[in-house]
Simulated scan of single mutants.
Amino acid sequence: MGKVDQEKKEYLLSILEKLEYGSLFITIHEGVITQLDIHEKTRLIKKNPQPKNRQ
């Protein structure tokens, strides 16, 4: 198993803290992190409209 330097650890944690919906793929070659693929999803939540008062 390779070692992860502090700078990469901090960068990974910052990504995870910001990611609300999605995924993070980490590519490792010969025990070294070489690539990060961040797939973020944006949720467009429709708020329920207020019911109209019918008179």
Rank of each mutant, 00 (worst) to 15 (best):
S23C: 07
H39N: 12
I15V: 11
R43F: 10
E7M: 05
K52V: 04
K46T: 14
K8G: 00
N53R: 14
D5A: 08
P49E: 04
V32R: 15
Q35A: 11
D5Q: 11
M1P: 11
E30W: 01
K52E: 13
D5C: 10
D5V: 08
K52M: 01
V32H: 13
T34G: 05
V4A: 01
T27G: 07
S23F: 03
H29N: 15
N53K: 14
S23N: 14
S23A: 11
G22K: 10
I15R: 09
M1A: 13
S14R: 13
K46V: 11
M1H: 08
G2M: 11
G31T: 10
K47M: 03
L19E: 05
T42K: 14
L19S: 04
E40I: 00
Q50M: 06
D5S: 10
H39L: 06
R43V: 15
S23I: 09
Q35M: 08
K52H: 06
R54F: 00
K46C: 02
P51S: 07
E40R: 08
E20G: 10
L24G: 05
T27L: 09
E17Y: 10
K41L: 08
L19A: 04
K8P: 00
S23P: 10
G31E: 11
R54D: 10
V4K: 02
K52G: 01
L12D: 05
K46Y: 01
T27F: 03
E30T: 07
Q35I: 05
L16G: 06
E10S: 11
E7H: 06
K9A: 03
N53T: 10
Y21T: 15
K41N: 12
L24V: 14
I26D: 07
L16K: 13
R54C: 00
V4L: 09
G22E: 09
I33F: 02
H39A: 03
Q55E: 07
I15Y: 02
K46D: 10
L13R: 14
K41P: 01
T42Q: 13
T34R: 12
K18R: 15
V4M: 02
L36E: 05
K47A: 03
L24F: 02
S23M: 08
Q50D: 03
I26A: 03
G22W: 02
L19F: 02
H29C: 05
E17I: 06
K3A: 12
K3E: 08
Y11E: 14
K46M: 08
Q6I: 03
I33M: 05
Q50E: 10
S14K: 14
I15F: 02
E40L: 00
I45A: 15
V4E: 01
K47Q: 09
L16A: 11
R43D: 08
E10K: 14
Q6L: 08
D5Y: 04
S23K: 14
D37A: 11
G31I: 07
K41A: 05
L13A: 13
I38V: 10
H39F: 00
N53Y: 00
L12P: 06
V32C: 09
S23E: 15
L44S: 06
I28L: 05
